[in-house]
Amino acid sequence: MPDEPVPPMIEMRHVNKFFGDFQVLKDVSLTVAKGERVVICGPSGSGKSTAIRCINRLEQHQSGQIFVEGVELTDKVKNIEHVRREVGMVFQQFNLFPHLSVLDNLTLAPRRVRKQSRHDTEALAMEYLARVRIAEQAHKFPSQLSGGQQQRVAIARALCMEPHILLFDEPTSALDPEMIKEVLDVMVELAESHMTMICVTHEMGFAKTVADKVIFMDHGQIVEVAPPEQFFSAPRHERTKLFLSQVLSH
């Protein structure tokens, strides 16, 4: 019993994925431990978004295995729905439900998926809205909020399902520059609470401050995995060096 190893939160083993003839993921293997914060970066089209979308099965992989908290992602709908309940996701385009108020955006899934009462979920939602510092907007509609506010609502919506893992797919890429900080601040707070997180992002400052490891992807492959200190000061691969020189040059 004491020797029983703790299974990783996420494990990808030799995952391959194709869009038609085009191979988006090439033999991607990756493990994420509980509480670990991982940043994935790389040029556009490198497969980084696809990789995290495979983790909650928004994309299907064609070969290899993916385990989330020990549950393998296969065609089994039950497994997929189980994993999705435990894995929250924040998108580049926020993807809030435009026909629902902020509060209803947050309570919909807890009520309809977790079958919690309206009263309980609303209390929970208000708590998370306060945490992302937007409680006063609870009764507005998403279209009445700024991009930064919408993204914070999206983070709160994901948190309302009380997930064990959070995936971020370029959460600040669609934001105006002055709004990036408010979203990053929330993400840093989450990271400090030891939420297991995988962030696809170009925010290298964020990677330096909070990541336990940084992954660099290019052409569908994981090129380099390193702790941030090493990743930024002494990258081993030429492609990583080239990428860093491009994103950090100004």
């Binding site: 999705r84 894995v87 929250g88 996701m89 899934a109």
Partner: peptide
């Protein structure tokens, strides 16, 4: 498509 993605990611059937 994002509406499908978001609702899927929240575990809705």
């Amino acid at each position: 498509r994002g509406q499908w993605d978001a609702s899927c990611s929240l575990g809705m059937n």
